[in-house]
């Protein structure tokens, strides 16, 4: 229940790419008990460090989950008071159509396509947000060009261990990193562990790049959601809900370090943690930017299997989430 509550609290705090102040404040309070120092860099990444013994073999290990989410930017206010918007990150327009949205200032509304536009012809220019304003003048009392909106956050429990809502991408990853930090809180390690909550992943993995440059990790692990092959009509993919932590082999931005993936598999087997391998043929994650920042790092990823990513009904299995936490913690202890 505690895990679910953490995920829910994180999900209910809207923070679109580039405007992560609120979620950062929340995460700072949550991670503080488990780290020695905590800093925010120029782009807004939250970087917390738990210091190791500082021996000769001490490594720098970076664990990263992104705290931003996809959303919309207000571009223009029509005389009618309707808001023209541009997508921030990889918005799926069919998934966004006819849903509730909320602005960074708390203004509520609905996002809809123009009348008579067929789903097959959806493009962002044909979408607008209706906040119920009677005209432009009234709208401008609550909203200005340059304001951001996100799809309304929500989270519910379904049958068994399944949870459904948004934005599980990637608040569930943040919860995993928090869980690992808690599990390692009282463990004295040789290595310095950097818990990083990155900004602007959804617009091109920008935050992790500068954070990794600052941390200069030897080993970098990314915690993000991955697609699954267990939905109706899905492309074949040997990864599904309830299958445990997904150890990333590749996605379209990175091929993970083989030694890291092997060590993750070993840690999972030895500790009897349910796991599966992930070969994702599309999509990118912070893994790649961490791998190539500065002089480079050995990079891998533990992914949380998630259905319907970038929709309002993203779905995870809490059992998988727990497996990701256990695997992350055991892997670090094994280094």
């Amino acid at each position: 229940m505690k895990l679910y509550n953490t995920i829910k609290d994180l999900c209910l705090c809207p923070s679109v790419s580039g405007r992560e102040e609120k979620i950062r404040d929340m995460l700072r309070e949550l991670i503080k008990p488990f780290c020695d120092e905590c800093a925010t860099d120029n782009l807004g990444n939250l970087i917390a460090v738990k210091k190791g013994r500082g021996t000769e073999n001490s490594k720098r290990i970076m664990l990263c989950a992104h705290m931003d989410e996809i959303g919309f930017l207000v571009n223009f206010i029509e005389d009618s008071g309707m808001l023209r918007v541009a997508p921030v990150g990889g918005i799926s327009l069919p998934a966004a159509a006819f849903t509730r949205v909320v602005s960074e200032k708390g203004v509520k509304g609905a996002i809809v396509p123009e009348d008579k536009v067929k789903a097959a012809d959806y493009k962002a220019q044909a979408f607008y947000i209706d906040i119920g304003a009677k005209d432009k003048k009234q709208a401008e009392t609550k909203v200005a060009i340059g304001d951001f909106f996100v799809a309304a956050p929500s989270l519910e429990k379904l049958m068994g261990n399944r949870i459904c809502g948004r934005p599980l991408d990637d608040r569930v990853g943040c919860a995993v990193v928090l869980g690992i930090a808690e599990a390692l809180a009282d463990v004295q390690l040789d290595h310095d562990i950097y818990y990083v909550f990155s900004v602007q992943e959804e617009v091109g993995c920008r935050g992790s790049q500068t954070a990794a440059f600052r941390v200069q990790p030897d080993i970098a692990l990314c915690f993000d959601v991955t697609a699954t092959g267990d939905t109706l009509g899905a492309s074949p993919m040997a990864c599904g809900l309830g299958g445990g932590a997904a150890i990333k082999i590749k996605d379209s931005s990175v091929i993970c370090d083989e030694e890291i993936t092997k060590a993750l598999c070993r840690a999972a087997k030895e500790n009897k943690i349910k796991h599966q391998k992930e070969v994702l043929l599309f999509g990118g994650t912070d893994t790649s930017s961490m791998q190539l920042a500065g002089a480079g790092a050995a990079a891998g990823a533990i992914s949380i299997p998630t259905r319907y990513i970038h929709s309002g009904v993203e779905m995870c299995d809490l059992g998988d989430v727990q497996c990701c936490i256990d695997l992350g913690a055991e892997f670090i202890k094994s280094i």
Binding site: Q291, L292, A293, G294, A295, G296
Partner: peptide, 8 residues
């Protein structure tokens, strides 16, 4: 990988 290697 050349980006990281050249940096080193």
């Amino acid at each position: 990988g050349v980006a990281a290697g050249a940096f080193r």
